[in-house]
């Protein structure tokens, strides 16, 4: 993937199906996450999406629609929305039960998102990610690759949300590129 010069910001959000309106119960189970997503997307325009097709793409499309943004092709995009999250094996009640390797794996990704560290994302172990049910590993690695290939620096990085309310690690992060 090539990151065009027009892309000024990257936002990372979870690809959780429960964010979709057709999967919403009467009570919002992730109000804090939703608020963080809205804040991270504030002020963006012409947003391209990087996500796996099964859940990431519909979730990303919904989150953009939800705040009145339209999806743009990557070549013309002012920002990139990456829908990807961490391991779903973070505890005994997690969807994938507990795998002791999940926490350290997610910690590496989380630190990279907090620090704007594209090098670390570009070197993510996809086999381990798959074992840990980290659905976001491929897209986060692709994000790292794209930022490195563009030669652009991450000017500011902000990790606005990091939590695992249901045993899956969710992040909301925003990078502004130089």
């Amino acid at each position: 993937m090539r990151l065009s010069a027009s892309v000024a910001s990257v936002v990372v959000v979870p690809a959780a199906p429960l964010l979709l309106p057709e999967h919403a119960g009467r009570a919002d189970v992730v109000p804090g996450l939703r608020a963080a997503v809205r804040r991270a997307l504030e002020g963006l325009h012409d947003v391209a999406v990087l996500a796996e097709p099964a859940w990431g793409e519909p979730v990303a499309a919904h989150l953009l629609r939800d705040i009145g943004l339209l999806e743009a092709p990557l070549g013309e995009a002012g920002a990139l929305l990456v829908a990807g999250d961490g391991s779903a094996r973070r505890g005994e009640k997690a969807p994938g039960h507990l795998d002791e390797r999940a926490a350290p794996y997610d910690a590496v990704v989380e630190e990279a998102l907090r620090e704007g560290d594209a090098v670390t994302l570009a070197s993510l172990d996809l086999d381990l990610g798959a074992e840990l049910l980290a659905a976001g590993a491929p897209v986060l690695r692709a994000l790292g690759d794209a930022v490195l290939a563009s030669g652009r620096a991450v000017q500011t990085a902000d990790l606005a949300y990091a939590d695992d309310p249901f045993g899956v690690r969710y992040w909301v992060a925003r990078w502004d590129l130089a």
């Binding site: 429960l18 999967h23 119960g25 045993g167």
Partner: peptide, 12 residues
């Protein structure tokens, strides 16, 4: 007629 009160199972 009514959405479940909360939905998480299989959707996290």
């Amino acid at each position: 007629d009514l959405a479940p009160a909360r939905l998480v199972r299989g959707l996290a």
